[in-house]
C-alpha cells in the first residue's frame, strides 16, 4: 500500500464509523413510543458494551480455558501449565525477577518523584525542572531502551566511561546477573518517576494551608514537616501512585525484549508470556502466564480503586 492509500483507509474507517453511528442515532431518536427511551439508551450504550464484551470479557474467559489445555490447545491437561510455572527452574527465576521488578520499581520511582516534587516546589525554575523529569513519560519503552543502550553499551556506553574514569573498571552491565536486572529496572524507573512526580506535586500543592500554619506555630519545620505533615497529607495519593506503577511494571515487557531479549537471567513474567505465546507458540503455557499476570494484577487494582474512591470521597 502506498502512503496515500494507508491514510485514505484510515479516513475511510473513521467515515464509516461516523456514518453508522449517525444512522443508528437518527433512526432511534425518531421512536416516540414508551419504549423510545430504552431503544435510544441502547443505541448510546450497546456499541461500547458490545466491543468491551468481544474484546475483553470473551477473550479473558477463553484464555482461562486455553491455559488448561496443552501446547496446541487440543486436549485438556488440567493444571499442568500452572504446575510448570511453579516448578520449572527457569520459570521460577522469571517469577523471582518479576518480584524484584515489582518491589523496586514502584518504591524507587515514587520516592524519587516525591523528593523531586518537594525540592522543586516553588523553586525558581519549577516548570522547566519538572518538565525534565516529566518528558520520558511521552517516550515509548522501546525508545527508552534505545536511549539507555547508549548508557550501558560495553564500548560506547556512558556508564563504562564513567566507572573507568573513577577507577571502578569496565563491566558488561547487561550480561552479569543478578545486577543486570537492576540496570533494566533503572530504565523503567527513569520513565515512571515523572508520573509519580506530577501526581504527587499536584497533591502536595492541595494541602490546606491552615494545617501548615498550625504546624509551624507548634515549631514544626524542615524534615519534620515533611515527615509528619506532607507525607501523611498525601498518603492516599502516594498509595494510588505506588499501585499504578506496580500494575504498569507487571505488564511491561518492552524493556526486557529490547535490551537482553530475556537472556542472561533477566526474563520477567510479561516477557515470558510474550515469548511462550507468540515465539514458541505454546498457547497453553502462554495463556497460563497471562492468567497469572491477571491474578497478580487483580488485588493491586482492587486496592488501587478503593483508594481512589476514598480520595474522591474526601
Amino acid at each position: 500500500m502506498s502512503t496515500g492509500e494507508k491514510l485514505l483507509q484510515a479516513l475511510i474507517v473513521v467515515a464509516i464509523f461516523f456514518a453508522v453511528v449517525t444512522l443508528i442515532l437518527t433512526l432511534t431518536s425518531r421512536v416516540r413510543s414508551r419504549a423510545g427511551e430504552l431503544i435510544q439508551s441502547m443505541a448510546f450504550v450497546l456499541p461500547a458494551v458490545g466491543l468491551v464484551g468481544v474484546g475483553l470479557l470473551y477473550p479473558a474467559i477463553n484464555s482461562i480455558n486455553l491455559s488448561l489445555k496443552d501446547k496446541y490447545s487440543t486436549k485438556y491437561v488440567g493444571f499442568d501449565n500452572y504446575k510448570t510455572i511453579f516448578t520449572d527452574a527457569d520459570l521460577l527465576r522469571v517469577l523471582g525477577n518479576t518480584a524484584l521488578w515489582v518491589v523496586v520499581t514502584p518504591i524507587v520511582a515514587t520516592l524519587i518523584g516525591l523528593i523531586y516534587a518537594v525540592l522543586t516546589d516553588h523553586a525558581r525554575f519549577e516548570r522547566t525542572a519538572k518538565a525534565i523529569i516529566f518528558l520520558p513519560m511521552a517516550i515509548s519503552l522501546v525508545g527508552a531502551s534505545l536511549i539507555w543502550k547508549f548508557v550501558y553499551d560495553d564500548r560506547i556506553g556512558l556508564l563504562n566511561a564513567f566507572t573507568d574514569t573513577v577507577g571502578l573498571g569496565r563491566h558488561h552491565w547487561l550480561i552479569n546477573s543478578p545486577w543486570n536486572n537492576i540496570w533494566l529496572i533503572v530504565i523503567l524507573i527513569w520513565v515512571q518517576a515523572g508520573f509519580a512526580m506530577t501526581v504527587l506535586s499536584a497533591s502536595i500543592k492541595a494541602i490546606p494551608t491552615d494545617i501548615i500554619e498550625a504546624a509551624k506555630l507548634d515549631g514544626v519545620g524542615g524534615l519534620k514537616m515533611f515527615r509528619f505533615i506532607t507525607v501523611p497529607s498525601i498518603r492516599p495519593t502516594l498509595i494510588v501512585v505506588l499501585t499504578t506503577i506496580t500494575i504498569t511494571t507487571l505488564k511491561a515487557f518492552d524493556i526486557v525484549r529490547q535490551t537482553t531479549g530475556g537472556n542472561y537471567k533477566t526474563s520477567v513474567l510479561s516477557y515470558e508470556y510474550y515469548r511462550q505465546s507468540f515465539q514458541s507458540a505454546n498457547w497453553g503455557l502462554g495463556s497460563a502466564l497471562a492468567v497469572l499476570i491477571f491474578v497478580l494484577v487483580l488485588p493491586v487494582v482492587i486496592y488501587n480503586i478503593r483508594q481512589m474512591r476514598k480520595l474522591e470521597a474526601r
Binding site: A48, V49, V52, G55, L56, L57, Y58, P59, A60, N62, S63, L66, L250, K251, S270, Y273, Y274, S277, W283, G286, S287, L289, A290, V291, I293, F294, V297, L298, V301, I302
Partner: peptide
Amino acid sequence: MIFALQIVPIQVTLVPL
C-alpha cells in the same frame, strides 16, 4: 461490569482475539 473490566490485562486477551 465495564468498570470492573479495566482490571483485565491485555495479555489475557491477545491469543483468543
